[in-house]
Design a protein around this nucleic acid. Structure first.
Lengths: 156, 156
DNA sequence: GGTAGTTGGTTTGATGTGCAAACCTAGGTG
DNA sequence: CACCTAGGTTTGCACATCAAACCAACTACC
């Protein structure tokens, strides 16, 4: 995918959402991450309609998020596995899970344990080692013709 | 929103996606986070159709993610602002941006500066201070009738 | 050896959602 | 008086989504 295909502001968030920004993709990735690799399991655990899930899995395989492996010859059967790109979605799911726990659903349905204790993740800057807070952030727009406010008009 | 409204696995990720898991919501939140508070600005910068955006903004206001403020009396004009819940979506957007930069769009369209230097965020555990890695994580399902593999059948 | 079940989908037909473009309201501007 | 701005809503059409049925190629049971 090229940055030119993005409508509106050229932005990696929009690019990411073009791949996984629909109703079922991230839930499918969640299930594969949980170890459920087969079509019927993913259908049952996400609640997605079978045709929708089939279509989304195809897109995710084409986008390199999932990999389809044949695990049986006759009749042919396939299972779905995470690629490196799919595994890299883990922070996205974790951020969504944490936000959902705190702002949508009251009681957490899943507890994440990190080496035995409950994890509450925080975003840290690897360069300086400090916790990243909103007020310390500054955004620099690298695409010509745009700034934070929107498209720059030539006669601006 | 209650956990019972979720189809498929009861999970905060699904709850979060029920609120912001559509094509435009997160892009709208991104724009408000960038300081673009007005309807036309959000329309232009996201590329969303006006009616879709109007509908999504209404949902986001009802869900407590955005707040609608009147900034002018006649004619009445409103602007959109982040609530605490909306501000808490920042890690979700950051995770998506980083994944998009690394796995979808090659050249980052936006650079995030943290106190002057470029930030590459990493997820750390606040309890033990260590970086959270996938292999150190364990998941515990708290909802009765479900485990990682799916719904638990009574007959084992 | 016939019937039912499993698995990984595809097809079907009704319904819902998404889209671009036009329109509306209420005022301001030249 | 015509046009512009801002924040939407309406319209008409296309496409996506859904649940349920169907299908193909096996396997298991009786």
């Amino acid at each position: 995918m090229s940055i030119a295909d993005i409508k509106g502001r050229p932005c990696s968030v929009a690019g990411a959402l073009a791949v996984v920004g629909d109703r079922w993709s991230l839930l499918a990735v969640r299930e594969v991450m949980f170890g459920n690799h087969r079509f019927s399991d993913i259908v049952r655990n996400t609640g997605a309609p079978r045709d929708r899930l089939a279509a989304r899995l195809k897109v995710l395989v084409e986008a390199g998020v999932l990999e389809r492996r044949q695990y049986q010859d006759s009749p042919p059967r396939w299972s779905y596995h995470l690629t490196a790109s799919g595994k890299a979605l883990s922070p996205v799911l974790e951020a969504l899970r944490q936000w959902g726990d705190e702002h949508v659903v009251r009681e957490p349905a899943l507890t994440l344990l990190h080496k035995g204790h409950e994890v509450r993740g925080a975003w840290y800057c690897e360069t300086c080692g400090e916790r990243v807070r909103g007020r310390d952030l500054e955004r620099r727009v690298n695409t010509p013709g745009w700034d934070l406010a929107g498209p720059v008009t030539p006669d601006g």
